[in-house]
Simulated assay, not measured.
Amino acid sequence: MTDHSIDMSIHPEVTAFPDDATNTISYVVHDPGSDACAVIDSVMDLDYAAGRISHEGADRIIAHIRAHGLRLDWIIETHVHADHLSAAPYLQDALGGRIGIGERIREVQDTFGRIFNEGTAFQRDGSQFDALFADGDVYHVGTMPVLAMATPGHTPACMTHVMGDAAFVGDTLFMPDGGSARADFPGGDAGVLYDSIQRVLALPDRMRLFMCHDYGPNGREIRWETTVAEERAHNIHVGGGRSREEFIRFRTERDATLPVPRLILPSLQVNMRAGEMPVDGEGRPMLKVPVNGL
């Protein structure tokens, strides 16, 4: 894959912030040409049983940005996550920046707006976000161009963000021994996911790939960085030339055995609102549990 907005000579500094409770990895990405940075896939802490939120993880990110004298330009969501709640508004209140996601968020909002019976008050036009990216859009973190590349399949709105020699793939791929994400959520599609993975694997061999999740397969320590070359050669779900038909069959059979993510109900309600909590008729934060809705 060649694209004028991909510049492998740019080597952004990437600092990872793993969240043990959700196996999520958030990132601060520093443009080497300025004091600007972006945050990728932040996490808000949730005690689901107690119905309490907190921001310890986001506070660590804020402290890092302040300690290094950085300016937060962008708060990026690679997709509407089903396994953790976004801390985007909390980060924005503390540090500024714009919140961005793929333009197909509208489809996700429409689907889950119906599932959660949100009514007409819930806007399904993506207006909760500051920017909606189309496939091929280029934006900037300081002086660094960023390519927004549509990689749907896990969800319709999934995007990979390419910053110099680093690409943030969301849930499109896992580490080589982790394979790929499920494709059975509403709007997901195993064949589309395979095609998206091929787009990622067409990036330059030495492109650094950063995962949104890692589950430590077979008891290994948590890892989050690999390369295109390593994924193409060794990914257990798509590496070594596995065909589209083989992948669809494997992914469909595997997804049928997977449990529903523990935090899917609160995550979807919050994340389709760009990290804001839904409220009841009196303005109090309130989450719904649609019975037999998923």
Score class of each variant (00 low, 15 high):
residue 3 D to A: 14
residue 4 H to C: 01
residue 4 H to L: 10
residue 14 V to S: 07
residue 17 F to T: 05
residue 18 P to L: 10
residue 20 D to S: 12
residue 21 A to T: 14
residue 23 N to A: 14
residue 26 S to E: 09
residue 27 Y to S: 08
residue 28 V to L: 04
residue 31 D to G: 03
residue 32 P to F: 01
residue 35 D to C: 12
residue 35 D to Q: 11
residue 36 A to S: 15
residue 36 A to W: 02
residue 39 V to I: 10
residue 40 I to Q: 09
residue 40 I to D: 09
residue 44 M to I: 09
residue 46 L to I: 08
residue 49 A to Y: 01
residue 52 R to V: 15
residue 55 H to G: 01
residue 55 H to W: 08
residue 58 A to G: 13
residue 63 A to T: 10
residue 71 R to V: 02
residue 71 R to L: 01
residue 72 L to C: 06
residue 76 I to P: 06
residue 78 T to W: 06
residue 79 H to M: 07
residue 82 A to V: 11
residue 82 A to R: 06
residue 84 H to A: 07
residue 86 S to N: 06
residue 87 A to Q: 12
residue 90 Y to V: 03
residue 93 D to V: 10
residue 94 A to L: 05
residue 96 G to Q: 10
residue 98 R to E: 14
residue 99 I to T: 06
residue 101 I to R: 08
residue 101 I to E: 05
residue 101 I to Y: 08
residue 106 R to K: 15
residue 106 R to G: 08
residue 109 Q to M: 03
residue 112 F to H: 01
residue 113 G to F: 00
residue 117 N to E: 01
residue 124 R to E: 00
residue 125 D to N: 10
residue 129 F to T: 04
residue 132 L to Q: 02
residue 132 L to Y: 04
residue 133 F to C: 08
residue 133 F to V: 07
residue 140 H to C: 04
residue 140 H to G: 00
residue 149 M to R: 09
residue 151 T to Q: 03
residue 153 G to A: 04
residue 158 C to R: 12
residue 160 T to H: 12
residue 160 T to L: 12
residue 161 H to G: 05
residue 162 V to Q: 14
residue 163 M to F: 09
residue 165 D to A: 13
residue 169 V to P: 00
residue 169 V to N: 00
residue 169 V to H: 00
residue 172 T to H: 02
residue 173 L to M: 07
residue 173 L to C: 09
residue 176 P to H: 05
residue 179 G to A: 09
residue 180 S to C: 02
residue 180 S to K: 00
residue 181 A to H: 13
residue 183 A to C: 12
residue 184 D to Y: 10
residue 185 F to A: 12
residue 185 F to R: 05
residue 194 Y to V: 00
residue 196 S to N: 09
residue 197 I to V: 13
residue 198 Q to L: 15
residue 198 Q to D: 06
residue 202 A to N: 15
residue 202 A to S: 15
residue 202 A to H: 10
residue 204 P to Y: 00
residue 207 M to A: 11
residue 208 R to H: 07
residue 211 M to R: 03
residue 211 M to N: 09
residue 212 C to A: 15
residue 212 C to K: 04
residue 212 C to L: 14
residue 215 Y to H: 13
residue 216 G to N: 15
residue 218 N to F: 11
residue 220 R to E: 13
residue 222 I to C: 06
residue 223 R to V: 10
residue 223 R to D: 09
residue 223 R to Q: 13
residue 224 W to K: 02
residue 225 E to L: 13
residue 225 E to F: 07
residue 228 V to F: 12
residue 230 E to Y: 02
residue 231 E to Q: 15
residue 234 H to P: 03
residue 235 N to R: 13
residue 240 G to N: 06
residue 244 R to D: 04
residue 245 E to I: 02
residue 250 F to E: 13
residue 254 R to C: 09
residue 254 R to L: 11
residue 255 D to E: 01
residue 268 L to R: 00
residue 269 Q to L: 10
residue 271 N to T: 11
residue 273 R to H: 05
residue 277 M to S: 06
residue 279 V to H: 07
residue 279 V to M: 02
residue 280 D to C: 06
residue 280 D to F: 04
residue 282 E to I: 01
residue 283 G to K: 03
residue 286 M to I: 02
residue 288 K to C: 07
residue 289 V to R: 11
residue 294 L to R: 03
